[in-house]
Amino acid sequence: MNASTKSHSFDLATASVRELNAALHALKDGTNASLWQVANPRGLHAIAAGLDAPVTVEVDGPVGYYCGGMNKQATIIVRGAAGVGVAENMMSGRVEVAGDVSQAAGATAHGGALIIGGDAGARCGISMKGVDIVVKGSVGHMSAFMAQAGTLTVFGDAGEALGDSIYEARLYVRGGVKSLGADCVEKEMRDEHRQELYERFKLAGVEGELDPSDFKRYGSARTLYHFHVDNASAY
């Protein structure tokens, strides 16, 4: 925050999500790095969706579906839980949720950082395309399904079919993995990966608290990249 940071408060008990988003969309790139404090979100949907300015939005409570959807540049902090598809298709910026998040967190996101304080539900990072997701708790089944690029770092456990049909995304899990999906395999942790993992710890503000050596790396066996009859049962 620079010296010109202005603070605004917005109460969703008395104003609508539409009014909030319209005000946030009116901010122009780089002109006013402001802080917006949003009260009473009550699980409402599409809070702070479609932002494109280096603004910080702090939401005090649980949000519904698609909070921070398609985010660019903005930092969105949720002091509570988040519903389906938090930070879906994010391009850049940062979305941070203190509590648990529902399914499809960070779905198809191209960039930026998604930091989840609690657990993530099913399909976390589905079809992710470059985002860095850090989940301090565990992730549900079918996480990183068809994940194309980016990293998913899980401090806890992963549910069934982790990384099914994965492309080039990299998955780091500290705890147990219930099962790996088709074409997803454990891979060697080399120095470059420990370095990458350390960078993710920094992103989540926990560097020094965790040891990269406690994590295992998972990625694509690349056997589904070209159809072969002997792999047909994996489709």
Partner: peptide
């Protein structure tokens, strides 16, 4: 809910 998000964006 998805349509609502696209309209908001």
């Amino acid at each position: 809910i998805k349509i609502e998000e696209l309209r908001e964006i």
